[in-house]
Amino acid sequence: MTHQATLYRMVLPDHVCPFGVRAKAMLEQAGYEVDDRVLATRDAVDSFEREQGVETTPQVFVGGERIGGSDDLQRWLRRG
Rank of each mutant, 00 (worst) to 15 (best):
M1E: 06
T2W: 08
T2C: 07
H3S: 10
H3D: 04
Q4F: 09
T6F: 05
L7E: 00
L7V: 01
R9Q: 11
R9M: 12
M10F: 15
V11F: 12
L12H: 05
L12I: 13
L12N: 02
L12G: 02
H15W: 15
V16W: 14
P18L: 13
P18F: 15
P18T: 14
F19N: 03
G20E: 00
R22Q: 13
R22T: 15
A23D: 02
A25I: 15
M26R: 13
L27F: 04
L27T: 00
Q29N: 14
A30C: 05
A30F: 06
Y32T: 07
E33V: 15
V34A: 05
V34T: 11
D35R: 10
D35E: 08
V38R: 10
V38Q: 08
V38S: 05
L39P: 01
L39S: 02
A40I: 12
A40S: 11
T41Q: 07
D43C: 04
D43P: 06
A44S: 09
V45I: 15
D46W: 11
F48A: 01
E49I: 14
E49A: 07
E49Y: 05
E49P: 03
E49K: 11
R50D: 05
R50K: 10
E51R: 10
E51Q: 12
E51S: 12
E51A: 07
Q52L: 06
Q52M: 09
G53P: 02
E55R: 11
T56K: 06
T56I: 08
P58A: 01
Q59Y: 02
Q59W: 01
V62G: 02
G64Q: 06
G64L: 09
E65R: 14
R66T: 01
I67V: 15
G68T: 13
G68D: 03
D71Q: 07
D72Y: 10
D72C: 09
D72N: 12
D72G: 07
L73R: 08
Q74E: 13
R75H: 08
W76P: 00
W76C: 01
L77F: 10
R79A: 14
G80I: 13
G80A: 13
